[in-house]
Design a protein around this nucleic acid. Structure first.
Lengths: 189, 189
DNA sequence: CTCCTATTAAGACCAGGTGATAACCTATTG
DNA sequence: CAATAGGTTATCACCTGGTCTTAATAGGAG
C-alpha cells in the first residue's frame, strides 16, 4: 500500500524530470489518481507548482544563456587594452563539464580564448582565420580559468594573438590565433 | 498626445527587453499609468502576458540549453562508426552569431568539430590534447553546417582525427584534432 | 461647445494553483 | 466482528495575473 504510493512518487519525479511543464491535471491522468493526490505528493516531495517551476527554469536559463551564448565574449573580461592585451575569467559550471568525469569540455577553453582574441583586435568586425591550440591539464568543475591574450604581431588586417589560460597559476591551455579584421576601427557608429 | 503614447510604448518594450518578468502591475507603476493602459499597450504591441513570456523563455531555453551545452555533442550526430568516422549537423541559430554581422562565432564550429572528434574515439573518456583549425568562409545565421570527422591514425591512446565542415558543399572549416583516451572501452558500466 | 482620442475603471470570467475540512475505502488488529 | 489507521478523494473558499467587454472620464483640436 505504502509501496504503491512510493512507487507513484518516484514516477512523478521521473515524469517531471523529463517534462517539468506538466500540470497537476496532466499528472493526475498519467498516474491515474486524483488531482488531490498529486498535490499531496508534490507537497510531500516539496515540488513547487507548475508556475514556480516554469519561472525558475526561465530565470535560471535566461541569465545563463545571456551570459553563456548571448554575449560577444565567453567569460568575463577583467582587463583590456585594445591591440595589446586582454584578460578574462571563466568560472566552470556544471553544464560545461562531462558528466562522468566532471572535466571541462575542451571547446569552452577554446571559446574563452577565441572570443578574447577577437575582442582584443582593434576592429569593428574581426573573425578567426586559424587557431592552433593545446590542452595541458584537464580543468575541472568549479575551477576559475584565467585567460591572458597578447597581440604578438599585426600584418595588414591579420593579427597573431597568443592566449594562455591558467588555473591556480598552472597553464592548462595555450592557443595561437590568427584573427582577420574585416572592418577597421574607423567609424564606430 | 499620441507622441506621449508612442514614447511610453517604446519604454515599455525597453523595460521588457531588460526584464521580461515584469507584471502589468509593475509596468503600470514604472510608467505611471493604469494597468488598463498597460494591457492596451501590450495588445497593440502584441506582447503576450507575463506567464506566456515566462513559459516561452523557459521552454525555449530548456531545450536550447539541453541541446547546446548540456549534451556531450554539439550539433546532431547523424552517422557514427566508432573509431572510423562520424557526421553531425549544426543549425546556426540567432544566438550563435555576431549581432552586427550575423556571422557565426568561431567557437561554435570548433565545438561541433571537437565534440564530434571526441565522440568518434572508441573510449569511455577522451579529452582533446591539441587542435589545429582553419576557418575558410564565414558561416551565417540560418546555415546548416555538416561536419565530417575521420580517424586518420591511432598510436596508443592518442588518436588523430580530421574534421571537415561544409555549408552547401563548400568547406568552411577544417580541423586536425589530437584526442587522448583516458579510459579504454572495456567496462562501460 | 462639441467631437475625438486616450485613458481609466468596473465587472465577469479563466487557469492553475493553495489550504482546510470532511468523507470515503480498505486493510489490519484487538 | 467492529474499531482504527493510512491513504485517497471531493468540496469549497481564496489567490495571482491575467482575459474580454462595456462604460465612464479627461483633455485638447476644430
Amino acid at each position: 500500500m505504502a509501496a504503491n504510493r512510493n512507487a507513484r512518487r518516484k514516477q512523478l519525479q521521473n515524469l517531471l524530470a523529463e517534462d517539468p511543464f506538466l500540470t497537476d491535471q496532466q499528472l493526475a491522468e498519467l498516474l491515474e489518481v486524483s488531482v488531490a493526490t498529486i498535490r499531496l505528493d508534490r507537497m510531500a516531495l516539496s515540488i513547487p507548482e507548475l508556475r514556480e517551476r516554469t519561472k525558475t527554469i526561465a530565470s535560471k536559463n535566461y541569465s545563463k544563456l545571456k551570459a553563456l551564448e548571448g554575449t560577444e565574449v565567453i567569460g568575463e573580461i577583467i582587463d583590456l587594452e585594445l591591440g595589446k592585451f586582454a584578460i578574462s575569467i571563466l568560472s566552470v559550471q556544471d553544464d560545461m563539464v562531462f558528466e562522468r568525469t566532471q572535466i571541462l569540455r575542451g571547446h569552452h577553453l577554446f571559446a574563452q580564448a577565441n572570443s578574447l582574441a577577437v575582442a582584443l583586435v582593434n576592429a569593428n568586425v574581426a573573425l578567426t582565420a586559424k587557431a592552433n591550440v593545446r590542452y595541458y591539464i584537464p580543468v575541472k568543475n568549479g575551477d576559475r580559468v584565467i585567460a591572458k591574450a597578447a597581440l604578438v604581431s599585426e600584418k595588414g588586417s591579420r593579427s597573431e594573438i597568443i592566449v594562455e589560460s591558467k588555473v591556480n597559476q598552472e597553464m592548462v591551455f595555450r592557443g595561437e590565433f590568427t584573427v582577420v579584421a574585416l572592418e577597421k576601427e574607423s567609424d564606430s557608429n
